[in-house]
Design a protein around this nucleic acid. Structure first.
Lengths: 357, 357
DNA sequence: TTGAAAGCGCTAACAT
DNA sequence: ATGTTAGCGCTTTCAA
């Protein structure tokens, strides 16, 4: 690898001149000096050493990205959009870490980012407890959290970008209600993350508004202790078993997310419960896999690309101007109808006048 | 952030002593000197600046990982295993890049790695043309290619880790043959990557051996030009349409990979072709999603974790000793039976004596 | 057993 | 318009 020295020698100029070219300070530079430097750079196939530059400037064109597990299709999707936005819009590379929702792994990742001189980091769907985040922020990290709402009333050094989870679940439940369902359930994994609580609230609000609050149920179930990508799927399967044996079975189900819905549907199938004939299901996320399961899953879709862009812009912006206040950025979800919801057969005509159509 | 200077001052020693502690050269060090240094490090929450270290040593504990798109569940799975192996076994971080199978993006990623001082890189399922790889290797990158076989007879500066694709497809076809299928097809996307050709060969070899070569068909279909994660799914769907309209329709299908199989099954469903009653399907990859589609997909599973470990060990090994020769590492696949294969109804009893069981 | 000092490649004052 | 120079924080001889 050639260095700035080699380029300077080759071009017959000093290293400062080369450095000036490198950093775009070509304003009052001799036209042919510039040309000679450029030629030398090309001839030597010179690439500035980032470590040296970083040692001097304290900056490195890199972002950290922390996900529970990149094998989970939802996180893979988000990661792709974030990497693409960071690279194409700002030339930033992405350092990836799987945390398996382990606090120690998260902390170590922050430490490594700091040591590597990386100042911007995106944390996807982390733990409820955010204290170690604040500590990382104090050490100089500019952080954006995805899929966690800000804790109300607490000033945070972290940007929060997420979908309106309340609205997402409300939309899903309302869709079921519109189709005449009156025995509703929200199926979730236990362990209250903030986004889960919000979804539950949205679900219950829709039920309440339709006068169905009394019969609406929230079914949760412990996930396996160790984080796996099939965690949600397993929860769905397990819940299917429980629901199958339930005499007062719900006819309309909102799933915490698409992966859980897939597991739920697979489980239902094993118990011979037809979807959507016997039970209708709505997911949340809008993964492209939802078109592949059978029946294709009706789901509340998240504007992932837009969120990814906002995340990157926030980091870049606050990196450039640390005095910028942090904020909360909420995105609207959108229901995408597919084939997992049918009109409820038990629906009373009075309650659903359009049942005959 | 505190520096080595701060630690030295706090401990009342020179920076060399601190550096020695940092690098484990504590052999003949005063017992309490060591203790004082350690205490100072802890007290100041000191973390060595990697950029400075790298500038000196030329090394940085980081690997590059290039995938077509991390949103593709198969690449997400591989990426997770690689990141985990790199981090847990060697403390290495992973720099991720999506290439969308674009040669320019790949080249730029290599350039950036070099500039960042990263010397090890893993390339997953890249283009057929490997010339830009060799150029990167000449510039000092230690490279491992996943899912591409070495070009025979050509000495390469690259390690190749892959599954035995021939065997994978052979296994899949043999499984169909065992179930009495005599009209076989291999469904693939057009564009001949090496792994695809090998799979085709394995498929045809199995057909040949069963005397079914004449009727065995390879169906390919152009993917959309721009790389997308639903690329394979779309190809599967399109092929389903074609197969549905085929009077001499195959009864046993081997899909290039699981994603394509999902699309194929979804397409078949739309055309009212029952799986496995009318057509049996076998995928290749063994993604966990295969348990979620309906019917659950019988698939030839890849030993992804073992492959990921080998990939990391190869890089680390050759980074430590560049004189190590590169090699090819082939892993055996394994058939996992689920519900997408049934005994062929058209099977002639003579050809399949156990048909009556 | 510990310390002094050179230098990795670059940026950005400051000089000229 | 271009060059000189002082570090950024660390590792590693070499000397004491």
């Amino acid at each position: 690898m050639s260095t700035i020295q080699d380029v300077a020698r080759q071009a017959g100029v000093s290293i400062s001149t080369v450095s000036n070219v490198l950093n775009g300070r070509t304003g009052r530079m001799g036209k042919d000096t510039l040309a000679r430097v450029r030629a030398a750079i090309a001839a030597l196939d010179y690439r500035p050493n980032r470590a040296a530059r970083q040692l001097k400037t304290g900056r490195t064109p890199m972002l950290g990205l922390l996900v529970p597990s990149i094998a989970n299709p939802m996180y893979g999707y988000i990661a792709r959009e974030i990497e693409t936005a960071a690279q194409e819009r700002h030339g930033l590379r992405v350092l990836l870490g799987n945390t398996y929702r382990n606090r120690l792994k998260e902390t170590r990742f922050f430490d490594d980012l700091l040591a590597h001189g990386v100042r911007g980091v995106i944390v996807v769907s982390s733990l409820v407890d955010e204290r170690h985040f604040e500590s990382a922020v104090e050490h100089g990290l500019v952080m954006v959290s995805y899929d966690r709402r800000a804790t109300p009333e607490i000033r945070s050094g972290i940007d929060h970008v997420s979908v309106d989870n309340f609205e997402a679940a409300r939309l899903a439940a309302a869709h079921l209600i519109e189709h005449g369902h009156r025995r509703l359930a929200f199926v979730t994994a236990s362990g209250k993350t903030m986004s889960r609580s919000e979804k539950i609230d949205g679900f219950l609000a829709a039920a309440e508004q339709a006068g169905l609050r009394a019969s609406a149920r929230v079914l949760d179930c412990a996930a396996r202790a160790d984080y796996g990508d099939s965690e949600m799927v397993d929860v769905g399967r397990e819940q299917a078993a429980r629901i199958a044996g339930d005499a007062e079975r719900p006819t309309g189900i909102v799933a915490l997310n698409d992966m859980l819905a897939y597991g739920l549907m697979a489980g239902m199938r094993e118990y011979g419960i037809a979807i959507p004939a016997a039970v209708s299901v709505v997911g949340i996320d809008g993964l492209f896999l939802s078109t592949l399961v059978s029946p294709a899953l009706t789901s509340v879709e998240l504007p992932v690309r837009e969120m990814a862009r906002t995340i990157v812009e926030r980091i870049v912006g606050r990196l450039a101007d640390p005095s910028l206040p942090t904020g909360e950025f909420l995105f609207p979800p959108r229901l995408v109808e597919r084939d997992s919801v049918a009109r409820c057969r038990d629906a009373e005509p009075a309650a659903a006048p359009e049942a005959a159509r």
